[in-house]
Amino acid sequence: MRNRLGNYQIHLDGTDVKLIELLYDNARTPIAELARAVGMTAPSVNERLKRLEENGVISGYRIEVNPVVLGYRLMAIVRMRQHPGKVKQLESLIESIAEFVECDKVTGDDCYIARLYLQDISDLDPILDPILDRVAEIADTNTAIVKSTPVKRRLLL
């Protein structure tokens, strides 16, 4: 498997791919367990992981927080198209709104797609209206509630 990183390619063999898949499923998997799963020694696995990190293939080990367990059962997606000449102002505003947990700058009809979580549909107006009032001064918006996520973020290999 070949991946493009910057101006060079990194070749991943089957062992690299298996290690990445195991860590993607559980970033806390002990080295000894990884070594058993790929039929290598722990020091060899450690070296492979170090090489994958140094080459930028593995850029970090993260936890995933389940919003539902914290009481956030709904996700809203806010699509924004800035008014002419307001792109930097809109981006600064988006960054300052703590309720936006993620935002992508995109091409196409919209310029930004942001996500925020709500505990209940009754939170939509009290939480979203003040945010949209601020954004509406410099962008047109469109909001949707996510019904389900048929494809969660996948491992890119």
Rank of each mutant, 00 (worst) to 15 (best):
N3C: 15
L5C: 10
N7P: 10
N7D: 11
Y8M: 15
Q9I: 04
Q9L: 10
Q9M: 13
H11D: 12
D13Q: 12
D13I: 10
T15H: 00
D16K: 03
V17A: 09
L19G: 05
I20E: 01
E21A: 06
L23K: 06
L23G: 10
Y24V: 02
D25G: 09
D25I: 11
P30V: 09
A32Y: 01
L34D: 04
A35D: 00
R36S: 14
A37C: 07
G39L: 12
G39T: 03
A42V: 13
P43D: 08
V45P: 07
N46P: 06
E47G: 14
R48C: 05
R51I: 06
V57S: 08
I58A: 02
S59I: 13
S59W: 07
R62T: 15
I63V: 10
E64R: 04
V65L: 13
N66S: 07
P67R: 06
V68G: 09
V68Q: 05
G71D: 03
Y72C: 15
Y72M: 15
A76L: 12
R79P: 07
M80K: 09
R81H: 07
Q82C: 03
K86H: 03
K86Q: 07
K88C: 11
K88V: 11
L90I: 02
S92H: 05
L93Q: 00
E95Y: 04
F100I: 02
E102N: 13
C103N: 04
C103H: 06
D104Y: 15
K105R: 13
V106N: 00
D109V: 12
I113Q: 09
R115I: 09
I121W: 15
S122G: 11
S122I: 04
L124N: 03
P126Y: 03
P130I: 02
D133K: 15
A136H: 09
I138M: 03
A139L: 10
A139T: 04
